[in-house]
Structure formats: structure tokens, C-alpha cells
Amino acid sequence: MNVTSGAPALSLQSVSITFGGLAAVSDVTMSVPKGAIAGLIGPNGAGKTTVFNIITGFYKPTSGRVEFSGADGGVARITGLPPHKICETGLARTFQNIRLFGNETAIQNVMVGAYVRQKGRWWMNMIPFAFSSSHNEEREIRHTATALLERLGLEKYMDATASSLPYGAQRRLEIARALATKPSFLLLDEPAAGMNPQESAELLGFIRRLRDEFDLSILLIEHDMKVVMGVCEHIWVLDQGMLIANGEPEEIRKNPKVIEAYLGKETAHA
């Protein structure tokens, strides 16, 4: 098991964002320890994906800051960095509505993920017989991508167009692509969306395996409470852009504020 001491892998400090006067996320402070599997839950429109978009650099928070401690151990402030720079530091994510490169094959999708760590320049691979290190790197990337697909059980889809894959395989391919960027932190946006009960039961083991085998910290957004309660070690609850609770799954399950947010006031009192 991973050590959870030292600086947190990811920490948000009083992060707020307003869109034209509307506070989508206000004063969110949370920190995910290294090696943890953490959950971010909340009713629809609570601002969960907005938090993800702030972390990954698609939105610049109005105030507050995001700090990330990657594989090298140093803590870096990543607020305001463009998304591709944030990926370079070792943060990878998947999307709520799967966003694969639809016209490309599964292996090409994964290889694109490896590009961020690729050193050879584009023109080097154009010229045959020269720049052997660059050509070797290309071969290496193909090998690692193949291995990654095999580890996630996607080898039979290797040369299939991404958009033609079955839904569950697309979800896993999106994770494989994220892993190809060699992240130390993975953000999963509703990994169980669209899965049947059996698939989401398998997902629990899959997420744990990801964390252990790839040495990751994971933060996930999820609506499926079985998944959230089954896999998360710590949970933050967001409602109308504000954190209303955080703690271990058991505490969250009993927290009256959480029940109220999810089920409405009357039911909570009943």
C-alpha cells in the first residue's frame, strides 16, 4: 500500500469561480493524500465537473489556488497553467461524456497520450535512416501502448476504430489513454456512467488495481453510490458550489446535510 504521509498529492485552497456573477464553485478547500482513492460527490449541477475543469486548467479560478505534488515530490502551484502544461506535471483525466479520438484506432489513441513525454521532434521521424534515437522512441511508444492495452484487456480492439468500440471498452480506452501520459494522479469523471450493476461492481476492483499497479492517487466524480462507498477512502460532498461535508464513507452516509442535499428537506426530516 502507498504511503499517505508527506505533502498531499493535490490540494485546493479556497477555490472559487464565478461565471457572470453566478458562483459556480465557492471556497472549496480539499486535499487528496498521496496514494488515496477519493470521491467528489453531489447532486446534479453541484459544480463537480467545474472543480475538475479548474484542476485541469480549463477554467481559471476567480480566487484561490490549486497545488499539485507530482512524482518528483515537489509541490507546484498549477493554478492558471494551460491544460497541456498541467498534464505534463502528471495529472491526467477522463471525461463524463467519453471523449476519444473517434477516427483513430485504439492504439493510436493511446499513442497520442504518450506524445507528451516524447522527446523526438516531428521532422526527425520523417527522415529514414537518420535520428535513430527518435525512431527507437517511436517503436518504444508503440510497444508501451500495446502493453498498456493488454493490461487493460483491450488487446483485441488494438486496430479497431475507437468510435466502433463497445461502450465499456471505450471507457477503459479513455483510461488507458490517460495512463499513457504517465500520470501520478488520475481524475475520473463518472467512470461508472452508463454501466450495468455487474460492470460497476467490476469497476471497484479495476479502480483499486489501477491505483496499486500504476502507483496513482485517484479522485473520482460518481453518482453510483455503490461505487463511491465501495472504493473511496475519503469523500467530499459538493452542493450548489459549496462543500457541505467531507469524511470517510460511513460518516458521509449518515451525515444529515448530505441526505438533505440528495433527497430534499422533507424526506430528510421524515
Binding site: 497541456h84 498534464c87 471525461f95 473517434g102 477516427n103 506524445y115 529514414p128
Partner: peptide, 27 residues
């Protein structure tokens, strides 16, 4: 040669989904 290299994959990735490409660390 360009299209068979990983840079070719990246070009098509940027065309197909710019947001996902950015997330994958592509400028």
C-alpha cells in the same frame, strides 16, 4: 512518413477533439 509517425496521430487527435487533446498534454 508524418502520418505514420506519432505526430500524425497527434494531428488527427487535435482535429477530432481539441479538448481531449489538450488534456493529453498536447499544445
Amino acid at each position: 512518413r508524418i502520418m505514420n509517425s506519432n505526430f500524425g496521430n497527434v494531428l488527427k487527435a487535435v482535429r477530432d477533439d481539441e479538448v481531449a487533446a489538450k488534456t493529453m498534454g498536447i499544445d
